[in-house]
């Protein structure tokens, strides 16, 4: 048996210094440490603040009342049943916890699919519904996305937050993924690998299968968005300071955007 690693540290800085020394390759790639703390005590503090009603009403907004429990769920620090039980205990009628429990359901669902597919989660589940052949997509993650230097204030902020904190709001993930796959036409696997390196909640099942959902290899149509959508849910915070606000690739009429992203598909029926 190899020598046990240290268990006793003066404080978090002491722990981080030790881990930098023990895992030099990881530290050399990116030395960032998240403000999010590991452990069940931290998870229980979040669990005690659970507000399923506010969650349901505000979860789509970047500053909405999301739970922040995903890193703990991913590593089994707490279980889906624990969070469900806490949600039910925090509401008067079970239905008031319905949206939160539904979102927990996605994790349960992806885990079940993972048990069936195993490493197959790295391959397209179904053909893409974008009109583009798989060969039209680049294999590698573009440097400007990885470094956060696209000039698009929103995407650069998401890239930076991913690398600095290991956490992104669900919509930031969806927008960054859609930008990479549909605007930059990069294979979803490149983005999935990048997310797994950084996300504290990075789980091959939830991560890869959600990328496939965006890409349309595990859904009936590609997920994409427009500026109005992003601006509204982010309170306009990125667009205000964006150097490319006047040549925003997400702006404009939805039908025309769809035509530009997916020219081979029949025109979108206006809603």
């Amino acid at each position: 048996m190899s020598t046990p690693m240290r268990r006793s540290f003066a404080d978090r800085d002491d722990l981080v210094a030790y881990l930098r020394e023990q895992f030099p390759a990881a530290a050399a790639r990116d030395a960032a440490v998240s403000p999010i703390r590991g452990g069940q005590r931290a998870a229980r503090e979040r669990l005690a603040r659970l507000n399923p009603v506010r969650y349901a009403a505000t979860r789509n907004a970047l500053d909405g009342a999301v739970t922040g429990l995903s890193p703990y769920l991913r590593h089994g620090v707490i279980g889906l049943a624990d969070v469900r039980d806490a949600a039910l205990a925090a509401v008067r009628r079970a239905a008031d916890a319905g949206k939160l429990v539904n979102e927990l359901g996605w994790r349960d669902y992806w885990q079940r699919v993972y048990r069936q597919l195993g490493r197959g989660i790295w391959r397209d589940r179904e053909p893409l519904k974008t009109g583009w052949p798989a060969s039209a997509y680049a294999v590698a993650l573009p440097d400007d996305v990885a470094q956060g230097t696209t000039g698009l204030a929103c995407m650069d902020a998401f890239s930076q937050q991913l690398r600095d904190t290991g956490y992104l709001h669900n919509h930031a993930r969806l927008w960054l993924a859609a930008y990479l796959v549909h605007w930059r036409r990069v294979r979803w696997q490149a983005g999935a690998r990048w997310f797994l390196e950084h996300l504290l909640d990075g789980d091959p099942a939830s991560n890869n299968l959600s990328w496939q959902w965006v890409a349309s290899s595990f859904s009936s149509k590609p997920y994409w968005f427009d500026r109005e959508n992003l601006e509204r849910l982010s309170g306009g915070r990125f667009c205000r300071s964006c150097a490319r606000a006047n040549e925003c690739p997400f702006a404009g009429d939805r039908a025309r955007l769809a035509q530009r992203l997916f020219p081979q598909l029949p025109p979108e029926v206006p809603r």
């Binding site: 930098r20 990116d30 290991g166 797994l196």
Partner: peptide, 18 residues
Amino acid sequence: RRRLSLKRIVFIYECLLE
């Protein structure tokens, strides 16, 4: 293989210390 970042390692280590 996964090129796991230092922040992921720190998070997991903090869980282990409990």
